[in-house]
Design a protein around this nucleic acid. Structure first.
Lengths: 159, 159
DNA sequence: ATGTATGCAAACCATTTGCAATGAC
DNA sequence: GTCATTGCAAATGGTTTGCATACAT
């Protein structure tokens, strides 16, 4: 897999960022970055914490929060808040921009590609604002919940 | 102002929703809805709470949370989580869809119109998902913070 | 009369903070 | 040797919950 290549690129980028900002290059920081780029998809601090413990790498939650902050700042990670009260995160480097379909019934999140959504419709209209990134969230009912609702309605016509 | 007309429409819609779901039509619920539609822009539970107290209408935060939940469910209010740990809300009825420009330096949020962003680019691509609403969040640096940064950089060339 | 909705206060829990110990430089 | 960073535990604060009371139906 060329995931190794990707990991090297993000590590280099992070190193550069840390150097530029006079931050220390601690093993924790690189381990966290590496771990994030070892798995695809969304994660939250708690799942990250647990999966690093599984890998036998001990970190505190405090350090995870600190490091995520740096990774957000240097654009290697993106943060989402889909509706609950946990923040979820996602790799940002080498990750095509996509929209999120969020089911308001079950909370499940799917991703869909979104071509050049932003470039075509928005970018030219924005004055006096330097864009770093953007996120499109589409809320509704997923197929699974929709089916369940229909079934339920059939069985219990009125409530 | 024809805000009275708008208020009547949302009240009717809410009444219909409450009736359909066998929920009680309490004065608190209508007062909250009315209050929300008396002011434009974003609000959070705390600011709503305080401004209702100012109006001499006593409600508990618990009731605000409960009622907001109903209003979200019937589409009269939309929820945003811009990055901090407070949820902010916004009127949804009669409110043109717009994107949000969120400054990652100062947290300020501006709105911009977004034509038919969704209709043109996304709707046709979504299968097996019933869309209720969508939100576009654009993160970056606002003009004000950008100016400050430049000034700072001039004064302190290196750090 | 019945049971839902309210208000209060306590509980919850993700995130933040303070501080002593560690370790990158 | 310094001082930023870590880890732990305590604090914070938005949101949720439990329960007695009020009130819509």
């Amino acid at each position: 897999m060329d995931n190794a290549k990707l990991k090297k690129q993000v590590k280099d980028k992070f190193t550069e960022y840390l150097t530029f900002h006079n931050c220390r290059k601690t093993p924790e920081r690189f381990a966290i970055l590496d771990h994030i780029y070892s798995t695809k998809g969304h994660f939250d601090i708690n799942s990250l914490y647990k999966s690093m413990i599984d890998i036998n790498f001990r970190v505190s939650r405090a350090t995870l929060y600190n490091t995520i902050e740096l990774l957000l700042d240097c654009g290697l990670v993106v943060k989402h808040q889909f509706g609950g009260n946990v923040s979820t995160y996602e790799r940002a480097y080498g990750n095509d921009n996509h929209s999120h379909l969020i089911c308001i019934a079950c909370g499940n999140v799917q991703e869909i590609k979104n071509g050049n959504l932003f470039a075509h419709n928005q970018q030219k209209k924005i004055k006096k604002f330097t864009v770093h990134y953007y996120s499109m969230y589409i809320y509704g009912i997923c197929n699974k919940c929709d089916q369940e609702k229909k079934t339920k309605t059939k069985n219990l016509p009125q409530k």
